[in-house]
Simulated assay, not measured.
Amino acid sequence: MGNKKKNRLSRIIIGQIVLLFIFLGVCEYLVRQEIVGSLYLSAPTEVVKEIVKLFVEGDVLHHLGITLQEFFGGFLISAVAGIATGLVLVLVPRAEDFFRPFLSALMAVPKVTLIPLLMLWLGIGLTHKMVIVFLFCFFTIAFNTITGIKQTSENHLKVARVFEASKFQTIMKVILPSAAPTIFVALRVSAATGLVGALFGEMVASKDGLGNLLVKATSLYNTAQAFAIITLVTIVSVLIIAGIDLLEKKVFLKWKSS
């Protein structure tokens, strides 16, 4: 059974790689044959050359470091605040009924429209971008935490009461483990949207970061460099989500089983 599963997974990965190369080959052909202008689409080989150029000749590591600093600062704060808010709203009687309409209204506000206003309040530095990332992530994490906690089995809670578990023990041993799958889904979604939030902030008002670098590339009609930056952002996003997956498997599952 294990071998069948491995073989199936191998076939899927091979199929994905083949599909990716076919897509890249079509893009390369369209640009080389001038079916699509290089102003609108860049050949994958040119994008690869531009990526190498950014690392060898440019200061892309500096810009990447700035973007990651903004992202992780806002994301970690939003994760802690979102999980804590979800816990409080569910565990404190009537708190959710009172505060949920306000949270829903704030979540409905388009975050992009707040970026210029936040710029007036906070300037264009690190704090400005961290707050943007926070706003992009917080509500998703908070509402998913609420949903996850409400899915906790009543039988598990009864067992905790029978063994006279404290409130803290019930939260750590029963409630959070039960809600964790839903919370980790929120963390994965928020990781992608939070990175987009950081880029938006940099594109609107920043002297550094990948978003600022992307604006410069498009303003100079450097399509290859723009696609290179987009590719780099995509890779970073995939790695962050993979890191969250690894955290769930290596850390949380061990904690849950213990």
Rank of each mutant, 00 (worst) to 15 (best):
S38Q: 11
G148A: 05
L210V: 10
L117D: 13
H156Y: 14
G37P: 01
S219K: 05
F134C: 13
F71G: 11
V92A: 11
F184H: 03
M107A: 15
I14Q: 14
T140D: 03
S190E: 08
A198E: 07
K167E: 00
K49N: 11
L214E: 05
T152P: 01
V56Y: 12
M1F: 09
V131Q: 02
K249T: 07
L54F: 09
N3L: 02
K158P: 03
G123F: 06
P93G: 09
S38T: 03
F139R: 01
G86C: 11
L118S: 11
S78E: 12
R32I: 04
F72H: 10
V26H: 11
S219L: 08
L117M: 14
K111P: 08
P177E: 12
A228P: 03
A95P: 11
L24V: 03
V47T: 15
G201L: 01
V204D: 01
V215R: 15
G201D: 00
V204F: 13
I124H: 07
L106Q: 14
S153G: 04
I51D: 04
L199P: 03
V60T: 10
L87C: 06
P110D: 08
K249H: 01
V26E: 09
L187I: 04
V162H: 12
A242K: 11
V80G: 03
Q169S: 11
S257D: 13
L103H: 13
F99L: 15
R32E: 07
L210A: 06
G74N: 12
I171T: 04
V26K: 10
H62D: 07
P93M: 15
F21P: 10
I35D: 03
A228F: 00
V215C: 06
I175C: 09
P44Y: 12
F168S: 07
N155T: 15
S190M: 10
T193Q: 10
C137V: 02
L210I: 12
L106C: 11
F184M: 07
P101D: 13
K111V: 05
A179Y: 07
S38E: 10
S258F: 06
L210D: 09
G201T: 02
L64C: 02
M107K: 15
Q16G: 07
L187C: 08
M172F: 02
L76Y: 09
L30V: 06
I124L: 13
D208V: 07
P177F: 12
F134K: 13
T147V: 09
L157N: 14
T113G: 05
F23H: 07
T152Q: 00
L76N: 14
L87N: 01
E57T: 01
A226N: 06
I51E: 01
E28D: 14
L9Y: 03
L24A: 10
I115L: 07
L122R: 09
A81P: 00
G2M: 07
K250W: 00
G194N: 08
K167M: 00
A192D: 00
V31C: 05
G243H: 03
L114D: 04
G197I: 14
K250Q: 10
V133P: 04
I124D: 08
V238D: 05
A192S: 07
T170Y: 05
E28L: 09
V238F: 05
D245E: 10
H63P: 03
W121I: 13
V48K: 05
A160M: 15
I235K: 05
